[in-house]
Design a protein around this nucleic acid. Structure first.
Lengths: 208, 208
DNA sequence: TGTGTAAGTAAGTGACTACTTGCATCCTGG
DNA sequence: CCAGGATGCAAGTAGTCACTTACTTACACA
């Protein structure tokens, strides 16, 4: 049991560093402090081990959620974005490896797409609720808006290490900056920051 | 000369499909219709061959440019975005492979970051010029705005194949939709679509 | 006609890979 | 105290990998 989990953790770590082909059973065994043969007795093959390691990792994701009823979009979305971008940053190595190998190992794609798909749905649902509340003053497609925010964070998490100058500074505020930009695109009014003078339309049903 | 280019092209193709470790000299030689040994005589080693193939590919990029003086932001940015996202889509396989292997082969990072860095600078410059013209009515950080638009397109190009439901439909309009969303975030007025009623501030220096 | 250069063929080298077999060791539960 | 299961060790198998050596062929040019 314990041994098994140690091997799974080591396999995930080695995979994050070297990818599938580079994750030799020798390396995994060394990383786990275990004899190579134990891996084969426990999991049968390298492929089965890595498959299980991936599943194990996906299951222990634990994404943040957004409230059903938006009340403070800037705060709520910023917090959600920060947790999402942190999730991506912590896993950036493994995500890069997985993406690079998805064409050769399509069975991984289910594992890989689970988290972002769920996050996208969560965000879309929130944006739709926000619009229904009258919290937005611009027309927008929720899916596009969600893809834009998540895409920006994804690219940031994947690329900042390689080209830090391209991404906003400081790193810790990036999620907030992307979020604010998106909210402006949707025409969301900001409580404290600046009282815009467009009280024209859709100030009707601020209820809920 | 001709042979050399054939081998370089084959190497790039094989690398896009299988990554560095999966690009065996045997596979590259077969793809190029050349004897394996010719590769070693021409390039010395597999590593040197792939390095040169990458450089060759980066040099033949040919990015679109944006005008120095913005005149029709929606049109100009949409065209630029479409060419950028098409660039990414055509190279999505090779980009994924490169990203996955950048930690193991850091010498690739120069090659990989050249195009996006250049594109980011181009876009930033344009946004700054647009703001200086008074074409925007919201405060924004150009780098963040550029990172957001490019990030959205990057994620779209990398992820749409794996999870088409997450990204805006149809694929052909995605670049335009992201662009419009960004322009709204900057407070850019749209010529024909809708005449907003906020002529409050910063309508002073529409010169240039 | 001779010479140099790029290419091919055949064979092989040493290292590494996933995976197997046989046997010794240890720890635990009954 | 002892049986059984998990683990380790040593050795080995068949395959692949990058890369080499030795020799041959084809063509260009002088």
């Amino acid at each position: 049991m314990n041994r098994r989990d140690e091997i799974l953790a080591a396999a995930a770590e080695v995979f994050a560093q070297h990818g599938f082909r580079g994750s030799t059973t020798r390396r995994i065994a060394d990383a786990a402090g275990v004899n190579e043969i134990t891996i084969f007795r426990q999991f049968g093959s390298k492929e089965a081990l890595l498959r299980e390691a991936m599943k194990h990792m996906t299951e222990s994701a634990g994404l943040a959620t957004l409230p059903e009823i938006p009340s403070d979009p800037e705060r709520e979305l910023t917090e959600w974005s920060e947790s999402f971008i942190q999730h991506l940053r912590l896993r950036s190595s493994i995500i890069r490896k997985t993406m690079g190998e998805i064409e050769e190992r399509p069975e991984m794609s289910k594992c890989a797409s689970f988290v972002p798909t769920q996050a996208s749905n969560e965000l879309c649902k929130y944006l739709v609720a926000l619009r229904r509340q009258g919290g937005t003053s611009e027309k927008f497609d929720p899916k596009t808006a969600a893809a834009m925010l998540m895409g920006a964070m994804f690219a940031d998490a994947m690329g900042r290490g390689m080209m830090p100058d391209v991404y906003p500074q400081p790193q810790g505020k990036a999620a907030h900056m992307y979020t604010v930009l998106l909210l402006r695109a949707l025409g969301v009014e900001f409580g404290s920051r600046r009282t815009t003078n467009k009280q024209s339309k859709r100030t009707k049903q601020l209820s809920a």
